[in-house]
Nucleic acid binder design. Structure first.
Length: 304
DNA sequence: ATCTATTTTAC
RNA sequence: UUUGUAAAAUAGAU
């Protein structure tokens, strides 16, 4: 707790440690992703890194490292709309990964027990178990709140303030800031990034969680039964009326205090049985459990 | 404990 | 073509 702050000041040395940088390289290489705007591929990455290894470490150490703009790529979403990815250069992905490897063990323990997305040792299944628990406790109305293009609307300065609560190393904070501000290259036109985290950077998921940790803490303060998986979150209440009231006050908090946008069309208050969360419907889940509990001798035509 | 490969799910 | 993180399963290397 207190000792962490002391270690925290020297985080950049942990970031640029040879074994950390090469471990980060391996992670990026293993993902086999596409190149960024410089066209350097994961195949070329190792020799590229070796060639500029010492200058790279020096620039990271003094905070003068300048990330390249991310490459904008549009991919279709299941609902037919587009999702814009921001692909950092392979080297920038290594640097982000190296920072992630150092800050994640420091930050993650401070996250909420109700947060399940993008976290070590946590998965969607555990989130569903909790949803089931809420349901069985009699919280059977779901407030389903949808954030409009969450990643793209993260407020930089607020995010930095939230990060400063966990990280005191000024150089690491500066590097993260530079990644947020490095801009987007859409074909040949450069777009400044004054808000949002690129969907594609290794740091983006943890930054998304740092930001919405503030929402978790507020919901805990209000003693709500909730589950959050990245930007997807649900609050379990006992009545439709309570749901409407919670929806209104939580929406107000999100828009005023977090400066995010609620997607009014997709947000809704409904019965737990008609809600789908993390690709799961509670009724189907209960149905499955019933089917497992009640033994059915002759129903299966399959092998046994 | 580290790492490679393949597949699936979630956002 | 299409990025990222996490989880799970399987095969394997040290």
């Amino acid at each position: 707790m207190k000792e962490q702050d002391g270690i925290n000041i020297n985080l950049i040395d942990k970031v640029i440690a040879n074994n950390n940088l090469w471990r980060a390289y391996k992670k990026v290489k293993a993902n086999n992703g596409a190149p960024g705007i410089d066209g350097i591929t994961v195949v070329q990455l190792k020799s590229h890194m070796k060639k500029y290894f010492e200058p790279l470490k020096k620039k990271l150490k003094d905070g003068t490292y300048q990330p390249q703009p991310v490459k904008r790529v549009a991919i279709p979403k299941p609902d037919g709309s587009k999702r814009y990815l921001g692909i950092p250069s392979v080297l920038d992905r290594v640097v982000q990964q190296a920072i992630l490897q150092v800050i994640e063990p420091i930050i993650d323990p401070h996250f909420s027990e109700h947060s399940f997305g993008f976290r070590k040792g946590r998965n969607a299944h555990q989130a569903i178990i909790l949803a089931e628990k809420y349901y069985e406790e009699g919280y059977r109305v779901v407030v389903d709140c949808d954030l409009k293009s969450y990643f793209d609307t993260i407020h930089h300065q607020r995010l930095r303030a939230y990060l400063e609560e966990f990280i005191s190393d000024k150089i690491v904070l500066k590097l993260i800031w530079k990644f947020l501000r490095s801009g987007i290259l859409d074909r040949d036109i450069y777009i400044e990034t004054k808000e949002g985290a690129p969907q594609g950077g290794p740091l983006s998921p943890i930054l998304a969680n740092v930001y919405l940790n503030k929402l978790d803490r507020e919901l805990e303060k209000r003693e709500h039964r909730f589950i959050r998986y990245a930007d997807d979150f649900v609050i379990y209440v006992k009545s439709k009326r309570a749901g409407e009231r919670v929806m209104e006050s939580v929406s107000k908090f999100i828009e005023q205090d977090l400066q995010l946008v609620i997607n009014q069309n997709k947000s809704k208050v409904c019965g737990a049985t008609t809600s789908t969360f993390l690709g799961f419907n509670i009724q189907n889940l209960m149905g499955k459990l019933d089917a497992d509990q009640v033994s059915r001798p002759n129903n299966d035509s399959k092998t046994s």
